[in-house]
Measured scan of single mutants.
Amino acid sequence: DLPPEQWSHTTVRNALKDLLKDMNQSSLAKECPLSQSMISSIVNSTYYANVSAAKCQEFGRWYKHFKKTK
């Protein structure tokens, strides 16, 4: 379990794929700090720029909290 400071584009993509087993992209976009188009691009590997470090950390913090509450 990585601390949010160490999250990267790959970590975010893997976490998104895991979350999308249980929910669809639009529900996920309402919950998490990423937009639906960004989620779609990341999981389909069409998001060519890497997600910014700040966004990765924000998502990492959100993901840890989300997993605790589920």
Score class of each variant (00 low, 15 high):
residue 1 D to Y: 04
residue 1 D to T: 02
residue 1 D to C: 03
residue 3 P to T: 10
residue 3 P to H: 12
residue 3 P to Y: 05
residue 3 P to C: 11
residue 4 P to Q: 12
residue 4 P to A: 11
residue 6 Q to I: 12
residue 6 Q to Y: 10
residue 6 Q to D: 05
residue 6 Q to V: 12
residue 7 W to P: 00
residue 7 W to K: 00
residue 7 W to F: 04
residue 8 S to Q: 15
residue 8 S to R: 07
residue 9 H to E: 15
residue 9 H to W: 14
residue 9 H to C: 15
residue 9 H to M: 14
residue 10 T to D: 06
residue 10 T to M: 15
residue 11 T to M: 12
residue 11 T to A: 12
residue 11 T to W: 07
residue 11 T to Y: 04
residue 12 V to R: 00
residue 12 V to S: 00
residue 12 V to A: 02
residue 14 N to M: 12
residue 14 N to Q: 12
residue 14 N to I: 08
residue 15 A to T: 14
residue 15 A to H: 02
residue 15 A to E: 07
residue 15 A to M: 04
residue 15 A to R: 04
residue 16 L to N: 00
residue 16 L to G: 01
residue 18 D to R: 10
residue 18 D to L: 09
residue 19 L to Y: 02
residue 19 L to I: 07
residue 19 L to P: 01
residue 19 L to M: 07
residue 19 L to C: 15
residue 19 L to A: 07
residue 20 L to I: 04
residue 20 L to V: 03
residue 20 L to M: 03
residue 20 L to T: 03
residue 21 K to E: 03
residue 21 K to D: 15
residue 22 D to A: 06
residue 22 D to S: 15
residue 22 D to R: 09
residue 22 D to Q: 10
residue 23 M to Y: 14
residue 23 M to S: 07
residue 24 N to K: 10
residue 25 Q to I: 14
residue 25 Q to P: 13
residue 25 Q to L: 15
residue 26 S to T: 14
residue 26 S to K: 11
residue 26 S to F: 05
residue 26 S to M: 13
residue 26 S to W: 07
residue 27 S to Y: 15
residue 27 S to P: 02
residue 27 S to N: 03
residue 27 S to V: 12
residue 28 L to W: 10
residue 28 L to R: 02
residue 29 A to V: 10
residue 29 A to T: 07
residue 30 K to V: 09
residue 30 K to I: 10
residue 31 E to S: 06
residue 31 E to A: 07
residue 32 C to G: 05
residue 32 C to L: 02
residue 32 C to R: 00
residue 33 P to S: 02
residue 33 P to Q: 07
residue 34 L to A: 01
residue 34 L to M: 08
residue 34 L to C: 00
residue 35 S to W: 00
residue 35 S to E: 10
residue 35 S to H: 12
residue 36 Q to S: 13
residue 36 Q to I: 08
residue 36 Q to Y: 08
residue 37 S to T: 14
residue 37 S to R: 11
residue 37 S to Y: 06
residue 37 S to P: 09
residue 38 M to Q: 15
residue 38 M to R: 04
residue 38 M to G: 03
residue 38 M to W: 06
residue 39 I to Q: 01
residue 39 I to Y: 00
residue 39 I to C: 02
residue 40 S to V: 09
residue 40 S to K: 11
residue 40 S to F: 07
residue 40 S to L: 13
residue 40 S to D: 14
residue 41 S to E: 13
residue 41 S to H: 15
residue 41 S to D: 07
residue 41 S to Y: 06
residue 42 I to E: 01
residue 42 I to M: 12
residue 42 I to T: 04
residue 42 I to R: 00
residue 43 V to L: 15
residue 43 V to A: 08
residue 43 V to Y: 07
residue 44 N to D: 05
residue 44 N to F: 05
residue 44 N to S: 05
residue 44 N to E: 08
residue 44 N to Y: 03
residue 45 S to I: 00
residue 45 S to F: 03
residue 45 S to C: 14
residue 45 S to R: 13
residue 46 T to S: 13
residue 46 T to C: 10
residue 46 T to W: 06
residue 47 Y to P: 14
residue 47 Y to F: 14
residue 47 Y to K: 09
residue 47 Y to N: 15
residue 48 Y to M: 09
residue 48 Y to S: 13
residue 48 Y to L: 11
residue 49 A to W: 08
residue 49 A to G: 11
residue 50 N to V: 06
residue 50 N to L: 02
residue 50 N to H: 15
residue 50 N to E: 13
residue 50 N to A: 06
residue 52 S to C: 05
residue 52 S to R: 02
residue 52 S to M: 01
residue 53 A to Q: 14
residue 53 A to P: 06
residue 54 A to M: 07
residue 54 A to V: 14
residue 54 A to Q: 09
residue 54 A to H: 06
residue 55 K to F: 01
residue 55 K to E: 14
residue 56 C to A: 09
residue 56 C to S: 03
residue 57 Q to T: 12
residue 57 Q to W: 07
residue 57 Q to P: 02
residue 57 Q to V: 13
residue 57 Q to G: 05
residue 57 Q to H: 08
residue 57 Q to K: 10
residue 57 Q to C: 11
residue 58 E to Y: 00
residue 58 E to V: 04
residue 58 E to K: 05
residue 58 E to L: 05
residue 58 E to A: 02
residue 58 E to C: 03
residue 59 F to L: 00
residue 60 G to A: 12
residue 60 G to N: 01
residue 60 G to T: 04
residue 60 G to S: 04
residue 61 R to S: 11
residue 61 R to Y: 09
residue 61 R to H: 04
residue 62 W to R: 01
residue 62 W to E: 00
residue 63 Y to W: 09
residue 63 Y to R: 00
residue 63 Y to A: 01
residue 64 K to Y: 08
residue 64 K to L: 13
residue 64 K to P: 02
residue 64 K to E: 15
residue 65 H to C: 06
residue 65 H to F: 07
residue 65 H to G: 10
residue 66 F to T: 06
residue 67 K to P: 02
residue 68 K to Q: 10
residue 68 K to S: 12
residue 69 T to R: 08
residue 70 K to L: 03
residue 70 K to V: 08
